[in-house]
Design a protein around this nucleic acid. Sequence first.
DNA 1: GGGATTGTTGGGCGATCGTCAAACAGTTCC
DNA 2: GGAACTGTTTGACGATCGCCCAACAATCCC
Lengths: 114, 114
Amino acid sequence: MGDGREELLPQPDIQDIQLEKVLQALGDPVRLKLLAIYAREGEQCDCDPRRFGLQHLHKSTVSHHMKVLRDAGVTSTKVVGRNRHVRLRREELDERFPGLVDVLLASLDAQAGV
Amino acid sequence: MGDGREELLPQPDIQDIQLEKVLQALGDPVRLKLLAIYAREGEQCDCDPRRFGLQHLHKSTVSHHMKVLRDAGVTSTKVVGRNRHVRLRREELDERFPGLVDVLLASLDAQAGV
DNA sequence: GGGATTGTTGGGCGATCGTCAAACAGTTCC
DNA sequence: GGAACTGTTTGACGATCGCCCAACAATCCC
C-alpha cells in the first residue's frame, strides 16, 4: 500500500533516554561503527550491510543492532518504502547530554590515530 | 608480610585503553555509580559496599565490578595493607579521550536533574 | 497479480554477564 | 601462633547477548 507516508519507528522520548542505555548500546564494536557512520554520512544511510563494511553480518543481525540503537535513543528510523532511513538523534542527544556525541566521535578518531 | 609496600593491581597502559571497553564497562548501573563516586570522593575510597549504597551486593560482586573497571582502564587500584585504594585514572583518560570523563559526569548530573 | 527486494520477527545456539556462595590468601593485631 | 578482617578467586546459576537461519510482512515494478 505505497501511499507515500513516512512512518517513524518507535523510539524513546528525549527525557526517557538513559545514559546507561546509551553507553550499553555503544559498548559494542558494530554499533560503535554504526554511530560513526551515521555521524559522518547522515540520514540517507539504510541497513544495507555492504555499504558499511558489515558484509560479514546477517541482515537480521544488522537489523537487531539498529533496534538496539533506536531503543536506546541514539538513532531515529524512518520507514520510506522498502527502506529505512536512519539518522543520529544528534540535536536531542546534545540537548539531553551536551557534548556526549562530540566527545565520543572525537574519541573514536583519537583511538584510530587520526 | 606487612612491609609497607604499595602495590598496583594490573591495569592496561594508556594507549591500550579501548573506547569500546570503557563504554561497555560503564554501561552498567553499578559501575556507573562507582564512576560517580570515584570522581567525587577520590582516592581514599575502597571496596566497602556500605559506603556506596551498595549494601545489597555481595562483596565478591563488588570486587568483580571493580575488576571490570580496572581492566577497562577506568580506575587504578593500589593495595594498601588489607585495603584497596581505588581512584579514577582521570589524567590518563583525559589524555587519551579528552573530555570524555567530564561529559559523562555532567551527563549523569543532567540525568539526575541537577 | 506475481516476482523480486528490503527489512523485521521468532527460534535456537553458544558465549558472556551479573549475582551469590564458599573457599582461599594476605594483613593486622593480640 | 592464632583470630579477625578485607578482598580475590572459583564455581554455579539464570538472564541476556550476538549471531544465524527460516519465515514473514511490506513495498516496488513488470
